[in-house]
């Protein structure tokens, strides 16, 4: 019998980024990372900014950074809806550092709560991105 696999799909509003059968994916959920193997209990979770690791066998075959979103898991499928997603190798560290710098300046210049929240969100995102890039 063929080895059971999970259909993993990563979708952004602009396009379907990734769709293939994998052995396991680890998704950064809001309440902590969770691994999805075949016959996982169905669930829906929010995703925090972090790295999705795709395993083939026991090896990580691909690492993709997502900036938050939602994950839907059923027994045979795992669908992640993400706003921004890019491969960890493609993260431009210098650009992200610049963004982080800008966001920090925005935070100190922010006049109202909305601008402060936006700046804080951007800082969290940039930091998560830097962490992911290592």
């Amino acid at each position: 019998m063929a080895k059971e696999q999970v259909e993993f799909e990563l979708v952004s509003p602009e396009k379907l980024l990734f769709s293939q059968s994998v052995d396991m994916v680890v998704v950064p959920g809001e309440d902590g990372d969770f691994g999805v193997l075949p016959r996982h209990a169905p669930m829906i979770s929010t995703v925090r900014p972090g790295v999705i690791a795709i395993y083939s066998g026991k090896e990580v075959s691909e690492r993709i950074f997502v900036a938050g979103g939602f994950a839907e898991v059923t027994g045979e499928r795992c669908t992640v809806l993400a706003e921004i997603a890019l491969r960890v190798g493609e993260i431009d560290k210098a650009a992200v550092k610049q963004q982080l710098q800008d966001a920090k300046e925005d935070l100190s210049d922010a006049k109202d709560d909305a601008a402060r929240d936006a700046a804080r969100k951007q800082i969290g995102l940039s930091e998560a991105m830097l962490n992911a890039a290592g």
């Binding site: 959920g29 809001e30 669930m43 979770s45």
Partner: peptide, 29 residues
């Protein structure tokens, strides 16, 4: 029916409150 009843993490209200605004952006898009 295909996957039975979902578990929600952190909670269904929390997800719904994230998902609904996002959905509006998606529909407008």
């Amino acid at each position: 029916s295909e996957g039975g009843i979902y578990d929600y993490e952190p909670s269904d209200e929390k997800i719904l409150s994230d998902l609904l605004p996002r959905n509006i952006a998606v529909q407008i898009f």
